[in-house]
């Protein structure tokens, strides 16, 4: 691009539009986090259900220690991404701080549920958080599928209140499949197309 001061008003407008478009095309790789956490929670919920229903294992909840894998991998990915980051977009920053905020909630809730021994009420809370988080992220990322799939978790949360703990685990798996795994794959396909 030259330093041309004799360009027309139309050309000025074209420069502004094309630059804003180029910035909009900058794609953050959010699909990694959706797929990582989606699959970890899905596997843990299904495994927990299987262990309760079909085995005599006395500590089936131990499968939730899988979440530590997610914590470590998210921190490593976050550090690597911040090293490579050439631009900070407002959407990217909003998503980052929203991610950290929800991580604080996800880490804090087990402490509260554990302290009061209220585990049987925990999954409806988590499904409710998925609903709100996906609705917010879908709106911010201008990704309507995520918004509507997130809202689909609301009836799942309502149903989960009326059923037993072990069946809540399956609903938790269903909710994470709808709210994280499916949008994660759609996002991943979109990122691959745009990054080509």
């Amino acid at each position: 691009m030259e330093d041309n001061q004799k360009f027309s008003a139309e050309q000025s407008l074209q420069v502004i539009q094309s630059m804003i478009q180029k910035v909009k095309e900058e794609v953050a790789n959010n699909s990694f986090y959706f797929l990582l956490w989606g699959w970890l929670v899905f596997i843990a919920a299904v495994l927990n259900f299987v262990l309760i229903k079909f085995t005599e294992f006395s500590h089936p909840y131990l499968v939730w220690n899988l979440m530590w894998v997610g914590v470590v991998m998210s921190i490593i990915k976050g550090i690597n991404e911040s090293k490579k980051e050439k631009v900070k977009t407002y959407i990217g920053e909003t998503m980052r701080y929203f991610g950290i905020s929800t991580a604080i909630i996800y880490c804090g809730l087990p402490f509260i549920f554990g302290s009061y021994n209220l585990w049987q009420y925990s999954f409806p809370f988590y499904i409710l958080i998925y609903t709100a988080a996906c609705f917010f992220m879908g709106s911010i990322m201008q990704f309507p599928i995520l918004k509507w799939l997130g809202l689909l978790c609301l009836p799942i949360m309502i149903i989960s209140v009326f059923i037993g703990f072990e069946w809540q685990l399956l609903l938790m798996a269903l909710a994470i499949l709808i709210a994280y795994i499916i949008p994660g794959y759609i996002l991943s396909a979109r990122e691959k197309t745009k990054n080509k």
Partner: peptide, 19 residues
Amino acid sequence: HSQLRLAVMSVLISVKDAE
């Protein structure tokens, strides 16, 4: 009103900061 300076400003107005 210079093509390159306008392009730079158009990028910067859309982001928090850029390298």
